[in-house]
Each structure stands twice: as structure tokens, then as C-alpha cells.
Amino acid sequence: MGRNGSHDVIITLVVSALLIWLLPLMISTYTLTVLVIYGMLGLSLGLIWGFGGILCFGQAAFFGLGAYTYAIAAINIGESTLPMVLAVLVPAVFAALLGAMMFYGRLTDVYLGVITLVVTLILFKFVNSTAGPQYVIGNARLGGFNGIPGFQTLNVPGDPSAYIWGDPYFYVCAIALVAVFLLVTWLLRSSFGRIAVGIRENEVRMGLMGYDIAARKTVLFAIGAAIAGLAGALFANWGEIVTPKLFSLGQSAEIIIWCIVGGLGTRFGPIVGAAGLAYLKFMLGQQSMIDNTLIMGLILVLFVVFLPRGLVPAVASLLNSIFGRTKRKPRPRRMRTARHG
């Protein structure tokens, strides 16, 4: 019954290679790049929420932190390699501190949601109010609501004049997403991942088995933030400007919607949800007949009512029933509660 790990890796690589080859024939790489980046951002929340049971309302905070870290470091350093590394590390460290405070304080899910939400708000308000010339980090002015434009974008490591942009930048982002996906796959296969799923299912039981829940949740939370930070840095490079909007609550809410629509508890679902909904939003943005937030809301409601497990699990079970295969079933979202209440 052993799951064949290398088999899965090969399938992932073949499918991604096909997608990376075919999609640019249909959609411009400029648009695709941002869809890929959102996919990575969706995956970051999909990992900690879908597999770790940590509902973070502030995933956008780590995304924005990654973007700002990149922009500020790039202006000061003038070469993109170290800023990319910092854009992953800074959100991870920030999340580790925030997570340790929440998980060792044994906060329940509701308060966890409130705190992550408030942290996002604080960052948003703070960055928004840094328009004055006194808000400077090194050579970088924070720029308040105008954001930070004109930083060094991604270059070939070691050669600041060899910019990576346009089509090549799309391939860099796509390969980064595949790498993160494989990393997440490996993580979930490892003991750490299996224990994380156990904690999602029953914290008390895992604690009684001798696992340090707070430590493990903190680490997972930081990994999720690192991925979100990487997505943020890629986004900064794509947009060539970072603005406080990255930290906005709307952005955070959207990430949660991506996960719900795509399918929680799957690796693929949040990516599909993010890319799909972002593309839909892009298409809707080209017309002015209907307000597109209205349509987004409608989609969320329809999914919650008719496909509560999300798109990917629904399609998977449909395929299963058509082809009569009894492969791994996606786990049911609605957990049965203990009879004792």
C-alpha cells in the first residue's frame, strides 16, 4: 500500500511542464505570472489552514511583508538575490514570533483569527501613514499610500544589469511555484506533515501522545508565512511597485475565498482557486456592467452552499465515481463531532 513518492513527483513535473508550455498560448504571460503568484499565495494558506487547521485571516500581511522587504532591501542593496532571501526570511521570523505568542498563549481559533486580522490592519494603517520623509529605511523611503516604486527588479544572480522580465520572468515564477508545490508535497509526506494533520484533527489527543502542539504549529505557521513572503517578493517584481494595498483586508479575505472555492485540505485546490478566481476577476475587470465584487461574493455563496468541499475535491470524487476507481478519497470537510459534545 506504500505511496509511490517518485511517481507523484514525475506526474507533477509532467503536468506542470505541459501547463507551462500550453497556457502561454492562450493567456498572456504577463497575466499568467500574477496568476501563478496568487497560486503560490493560495497554497501558503492552503498549507497552514487545510493541513494544519490554522485559520489565518492575515495571510496578506506576510505577502505584503515579503513584498516590502524585497523592495526596501533591493533599493539598499541594488542586487536582487539577497533581497529575495530576506523576503522569505523576514515574514517567516515575524510569523514565528506572532505564532509563538498565539500558540503558546493557547488562544482558541476565534482569537487567532481576530489577532491575525488585527495585525494585518495595523500593518496596513502603519504603512499607509509613512508618507513623510522621516520614514526611511537606509535609502528607501516607505512612501505611505504611494508605496515604493523604482526598486531593482529581479536579475540574474550576481549580475544586476541582467534583468529577468517578460516571458523569462513568467518561467521563473512558474518554476518557483512547482518547486514550492513539491516542497509542500514532501513536507506533507514527512512525519512533520502527518503530525500536523493529526494536530488539525485533534489537538488534545496529539498533546496526550506527547507532541508539543504549540511548537509544531508555530513552525508550520512560519513555513506558510515564508511561502507567502516569496509570493510577495515575486509580486513586487511583477508590479515593479509595492503599495499598502498588499496588506489590505480585502486581499486577506480573497485568499481565504480562494482556498474555500478551490478546496481545502488539498494541495492543488488553493492554487486552482487562486488562479481561477484571479483570472475571473481580471476578465470581469474588462467590463463595467456588473460590479465584480458582487460576482465574487455570489461565487463564494454558491460554493459554500452547493460545493462546500470546494472544486478540486468535488471534481476528484466525480472522476472517481465515473471511472470507479477507489483511490485515496478526499477527506470529508465536515467533521463528525464527538457524541459527548
Binding site: V197, G198, N202, G207, L208, M209, G210, R331
Partner: peptide
Amino acid sequence: WQPHQIASLGVGIKTQTPNVMDAL
């Protein structure tokens, strides 16, 4: 001590209400 520290000593604990991972 925290329950996980006590369990780490080699103590097996079963609580009154069933505590298992339902989806696994």
C-alpha cells in the same frame, strides 16, 4: 507540567470523551 511533557515520559493517557483523529 503540560500533558505533552507528561506523556513524553512514557505515560499513556485516555480521556473520558473519545479523543481520536476522525478523518484519519
